[in-house]
Amino acid sequence: MYKYVIRRLLLAIPVLLMSSLIVFGLMRVMPGDALIALMGESGNINAKELAKLRADLGLDRPYHEQYLLWLWQMVTFNPGHSIFTNEPIPVALKKAIPVTLELAAIALVLGLLIAVPIGVLSATRQDKPEDYAGRVVAVSGLSIPDFWLGTLVITFAAIWFQWIPPIGYASLWDDPLRNLQQFLLPAAVLGFRLSSATMRMTRSTVLEVLREDYVRTAWAKGLAGRIVVYKHALKNALIPVVTIVGGQLGVLLAGTFVVETIFALPGMGRLTVEAILYRDYPIVQTNVMLVAATLVTLNLIVDLTYAWLDPRIRYR
C-alpha cells in the first residue's frame, strides 16, 4: 500500500506545480500589467506611488523570482494583501473558508439525502411512474442552472411564505439558528445540483445489484422487501456511488462560487467573484490555487481510500 501512496503523492506534486504555473502565468498575461490595468480603471496615481506599489507586490522582479516568491508565500500561508482593501489575504480567507466549508458540507449531506432514497425508489419501481418522476428530477438537476434555481427559491419563498433568509452573516457558533436559516436554502440548491449524478448512479447500481444471486436468495428466504433492499442490496450498490460523489467535488466547489454570490454568503466563492470583478489579482490567484490544491488533495484522498478498500486498484 505504501508504494501506491508514494506513487500517487509523486504524481500529485507535478500536477500541483503545473497548476500553480498556469495560475501564475494567467495572472501575468493580463494585457499591460496587473497594476497598470488596475490603476487605469480606478483613477489617477502618480509614478512614485505606482513604483512603490509595484515593489510592494514584487512586480518589479523577474518572472521566475516572482513565481518562486509566490510559491513560497503560498507554502508558508502568507500570500500577501488584497490590492483594494489592503487586508492580509490569510485574514480574509480565515473568515471565508469556514463559510464555504459549512455550505459544502451541508450541501453534500442534503445531496445524498435527496439522491440515495430517490435513486433506490427509482430502481425498485423501475419503469413505474415513481421511476419516471425520479429520472425527471435527476435530469432537471443537471439542466437547471444553480443561479436560476437559487433566484426562484428566494423569490417564491418570499411570495408564498413571506420569508427571506436573514441578512447579515451569523456564524454557526454565535447564532446556530440564524446560521441554519441562512444556509438551508443555498445548501439545498447546491445539494439538488449535486444529487442528480448521484441519483442516476444509485439507480443504475441498485438495479444491477437487485439482479444478483445473493439478493434473489434473500428474497427466496422470505425477507421483507425493505431489508432486502436496504440491508443487502444498498450496501454493495453504494460503493460506485462513493466514486461519483468523489468526482462531484469539483462541481461542489464551483457551485459554491455561484450560490454564495446569490445568497450573499461571505465565503471563498463570493470573495473570489468580487476579486475578479475588481481585478484584485493577488486574491484571485491565491483562491484559484487554493481551490486547485484542495481538489487535488481531495481526489488524492478519495483515490487512496479506494485503494485501501479495494486492493486490486493498487496493482493497476
Binding site: V15, T272, V288, A292
Partner: peptide, 22 residues
C-alpha cells in the same frame, strides 16, 4: 500533465479566472 493541471481547477473557476484576465 498540463491537461491534468488544467483539470485540477474546476471549469467554472478556471473560466472565471481567464475572463478576469481578459
Amino acid at each position: 500533465r498540463v491537461m491534468d493541471a488544467i483539470q485540477a481547477i474546476p471549469g467554472l473557476v478556471l473560466a472565471l479566472a481567464i475572463v478576469a484576465i481578459l
